[in-house]
Design a protein around this nucleic acid. Sequence first.
DNA 1: CAGTGGTCTAGACCACAAC
DNA 2: TTGTGGTCTAGACCACTGA
Lengths: 249, 249
Amino acid sequence: MARWHEVAEALRGAITAGIYQPGAKIPKEDELQEEFDTSRTTIRRAVAQLTAEGLLTPVRRGGTKVREQPERQSLALDTAVYRDELGYYFSKTVQHLRALQPPTVTQEPCPPDVLALLGLQAGDHVIIRDRVMGNSETGRVEQLATSYLPADLAAGTVLAQADTGPGGIYDRMENELGWGLLEWEGIITARPATAEEGDLLSLAPGVPVLCVTRSTIATAGAAEGRVVEVNVTRRDASRFEVRYPISRA
Amino acid sequence: MARWHEVAEALRGAITAGIYQPGAKIPKEDELQEEFDTSRTTIRRAVAQLTAEGLLTPVRRGGTKVREQPERQSLALDTAVYRDELGYYFSKTVQHLRALQPPTVTQEPCPPDVLALLGLQAGDHVIIRDRVMGNSETGRVEQLATSYLPADLAAGTVLAQADTGPGGIYDRMENELGWGLLEWEGIITARPATAEEGDLLSLAPGVPVLCVTRSTIATAGAAEGRVVEVNVTRRDASRFEVRYPISRA
DNA sequence: CAGTGGTCTAGACCACAAC
DNA sequence: TTGTGGTCTAGACCACTGA
């Protein structure tokens, strides 16, 4: 077994055994170096591993702390979609999330991971609507939301404009565009965060993002039967969870 | 910006731009060292970052490859529980998963992350039933399943034995123990994989685990109103997703 | 403002698996 | 067999930030 692996295991054991409590500092690198009689690089490799596992967070000038796991915030699973005079919404729980800035709208080749969902070919273009959402009072960023719309359907329409008017894009699709009563399907996934996501969401190193991907299907008009939108929301996986009820069938 | 950050960004750009295709090899470390005119350590730091993001997988003696994202396997969300003469099951989709070994049963202090779910105090003991599940034909490990039961309820009962008989623990709870018709609730989370999970599930470095946590609530008998079991299943987040329907309310 | 973690260098040897 | 990534050393300087 590699030396850094041994060091990591020793530290991990000390943490789970409670010798180092959450919020407490572990010895500084020089001290660990002496304790384990190895080079600083090896110590750093071990600490990096535990950091990636979410156990430690190094603080500049403040030592390396045992990470306090934040309480996870529950999201109700949006198995039903509601509608009132203002538009569609997917959760009965009041969302305090607001777009912190106007959405970014661009047109680009479709990223590979949404190609299949939209039923497109490699190289096909999509309209990308990007929003950074959070608590408008504290300014804290809570989720990143991105919509992908096939360019052959959406380019040049109101769907490609930053302001889509009252009710948002779904109202436009059902009313002005005549795409019928929309249908939806959801997928929950998780993956490592990109560097950009880590920045925007203030993720601790190594923490993944929890993704909820919602596909919108048209039932009439020019887009009948097609997936006309894929919406991906990404959240800090250490701070959010998706909760759902189970009933007897 | 740190040098390794620049290198990482350059490589990331080349990958997303398709200059390095999935499955292809990026230049070996010496060549990158020359190309970017920096030390090997810096190159390795950059490659480590992209590996953690799931973009690269180094292969010994075979160079470093651009990771081919495996197609995700869909899991139906178990919003309903079914029952037949053999016992309970949570998914209509036939599961080919079998326990690859008999379950491990131990008694330990309750881990902090399930304390609140079980309504226990720090230091309280739980019975832990651990199973490694996978495809019994290929031997491939697909998921890790762990059940936590409060020791004050389960110790000394059939629930603490490796073989719980036909129908499993839920039948024992409802029938022999008289805990009434059980109820359930589910939670979906994601977190970085531990070293052990990475080994068992053959996870690529940096890939998180997708967790489905199911709590069982008793409605009668000595355990009435209590959470009598917490079941946590962990899967490779790059290979699984949870899919669910959305209907109009 | 000084001590901590962050970055970087130059070099060496090792172990594993693809060739 | 041997070239690749994996590990490790000893040392240096930097930059941020919390004491």
